[in-house]
Lab assay of single mutants.
Amino acid sequence: SLTLTVRGEEAVRRWYKWAQAHNLEVEVETHGDEYVLHIK
């Protein structure tokens, strides 16, 4: 499992696509303009 902090929706989309390509689940938490992604 992997936890990432990114800024901006574009980065979130990029990681989301990456995770889907690897059959992984993604949980997204929003903290202001930062997003915490939990990839499992």
Rank of each mutant, 00 (worst) to 15 (best):
E29I: 11
N23Q: 08
V28K: 04
T3D: 05
L2N: 04
A19S: 03
L2W: 15
E27T: 14
L24I: 07
E34D: 10
T30N: 13
G32T: 04
E29D: 07
W15D: 00
Q20F: 08
E25H: 14
R13E: 14
V26W: 07
G32F: 05
G8R: 03
E27K: 11
G8C: 02
E25Q: 13
R14Q: 14
N23Y: 07
L4Y: 04
T30G: 09
V6H: 02
A19R: 00
V28W: 07
E34K: 10
A21G: 06
G32K: 05
W18M: 02
L37W: 01
E25T: 14
V12T: 03
V26T: 03
L2K: 05
E25G: 06
Y35K: 03
W18Q: 01
A11Y: 05
T30L: 13
I39N: 00
T5W: 06
S1P: 12
G8F: 05
S1V: 15
T5G: 03
E29S: 09
V28S: 04
E25M: 12
T5Q: 08
L24E: 01
V28H: 05
H22W: 07
H22P: 00
T3H: 11
R14T: 09
H38A: 03
L24R: 06
W15M: 05
L24Y: 14
E25A: 10
H22I: 04
H22A: 06
V12E: 02
R14F: 15
E25I: 15
H31A: 09
V12L: 15
V28F: 07
H22Y: 08
K40M: 10
T5Y: 07
R13G: 08
E34N: 10
A11R: 05
T30Y: 11
I39D: 00
E10T: 08
R14Y: 15
E25F: 12
V26A: 03
A19Y: 02
L4K: 04
K17H: 11
H31V: 12
T3V: 11
I39K: 00
L37T: 00
Y35G: 01
T30K: 15
H31G: 04
V28A: 04
Y35M: 05
S1E: 15
G32C: 02
R14S: 10
K17G: 08
G8P: 02
A19D: 00
T5F: 06
L37Y: 00
R7I: 13
G8T: 14
E29L: 09
Y16Q: 15
V36N: 03
A21T: 09
N23T: 04
G32Y: 05
K40G: 11
W18N: 01
V6L: 06
L24A: 06
D33H: 08
V6M: 04
E25W: 12
L24V: 06
G32Q: 05
Y16K: 15
Q20Y: 10
R13F: 08
L4N: 02
Y16P: 00
L2D: 04
I39T: 01
T30M: 13
Y35T: 05
K17V: 12
V36G: 01
K17S: 11
L2G: 05
A21E: 14
V36Q: 05
W18S: 01
R7W: 12
E27A: 11
G32E: 07
Y35I: 08
W18Y: 07
E34Q: 11
L37S: 00
A19M: 03
E34S: 11
E29P: 01
Y16S: 09
I39H: 00
A11I: 06
A21V: 09
W15G: 01
Q20P: 00
G32N: 07
H38V: 11
V28T: 06
Q20L: 13
V6F: 05
L2F: 15
T5R: 14
H22N: 12
H38M: 06
V26Y: 07
E29M: 09
W15S: 01
E25V: 14
H38L: 07
L37M: 07
R13L: 12
V26S: 01
H31P: 02
K17D: 12
E9D: 09
V28R: 02
E25L: 13
V12S: 03
H22S: 04
R7L: 10
E27Q: 11
V36A: 03
K17T: 11
A11F: 05
G8E: 07
Y35S: 04
R14K: 14
V12K: 06
E27N: 09
A11N: 11
E9M: 13
V36M: 06
L4R: 03
Y35E: 02
K40Y: 15
A21W: 10
H31L: 11
H31W: 10
K40T: 13
L37A: 01
L37G: 00
E29R: 08
Y35H: 06
Q20D: 08
N23G: 15
R14W: 15
E25Y: 14
E27R: 12
L4I: 15
R14P: 03
G32S: 05
T3K: 11
K40P: 04
Q20A: 13
V6I: 09
E9V: 12
K40R: 14
H31I: 12
D33N: 10
K40I: 11
G8A: 05
V6G: 02
L4H: 04
R7C: 10
E10C: 03
R7Q: 12
L24Q: 03
N23A: 09
L2P: 04
H22R: 08
H22D: 02
H38Q: 06
W15Y: 06
D33S: 08
V6K: 01
Y16H: 10
V26F: 14
V26Q: 01
K17F: 10
A19P: 00
A19F: 07
T5D: 02
E29N: 05
K40D: 04
I39F: 13
T5V: 15
L37N: 00
R13P: 01
H22G: 02
D33L: 07
E27V: 14
L24N: 02
W18L: 03
Y16L: 15
T5H: 14
A11M: 10
A19K: 00
D33K: 06
V28Q: 04
G32I: 04
R13W: 10
E10R: 07
I39Y: 02
R13N: 13
R7P: 03
V12A: 12
G32A: 06
V6R: 01
T3L: 07
V12M: 15
E29Q: 09
N23E: 07
L2V: 09
A21D: 14
W18E: 01
L37P: 00
A11T: 08
A11P: 03
T30C: 04
T5A: 08
Q20K: 11
A11S: 08
L24M: 13
Y35D: 01
V28N: 02
D33T: 07
L4P: 02
R14L: 14
Y16T: 15
I39M: 07
L2E: 04
E10Q: 08
R13Y: 10
V6D: 01
A21K: 10
R13Q: 13
V28E: 03
E10Y: 07
T3G: 04
L24K: 05
A11V: 07
H38C: 03
Y16W: 11
E34F: 15
W15I: 14
Q20W: 10
L2A: 05
E25S: 12
V28M: 10
Q20T: 12
V36E: 04
L37D: 00
V26C: 03
V6Y: 02
E25K: 11
G8I: 03
N23D: 09
R14G: 10
G8W: 04
E9L: 14
V36L: 09
V26P: 02
L24G: 02
D33W: 04
R7A: 08
T3R: 10
W15K: 01
R14V: 11
E34I: 15
E9F: 12
T3I: 13
A19N: 01
H38N: 06
D33A: 08
V12N: 01
T5N: 07
H31F: 12
E29A: 07
V36K: 07
V12F: 15
W15H: 02
S1A: 12
T3N: 07
A19G: 03
T3A: 06
Y16F: 15
D33F: 06
T5M: 10
L2S: 04
Q20V: 12
E34M: 15
V36D: 02
L37K: 00
G32L: 05
T5S: 07
E10L: 08
H31R: 14
Q20G: 05
E9G: 05
E10W: 08
Y35N: 02
A21H: 10
V26M: 14
D33R: 05
A21P: 01
E27H: 13
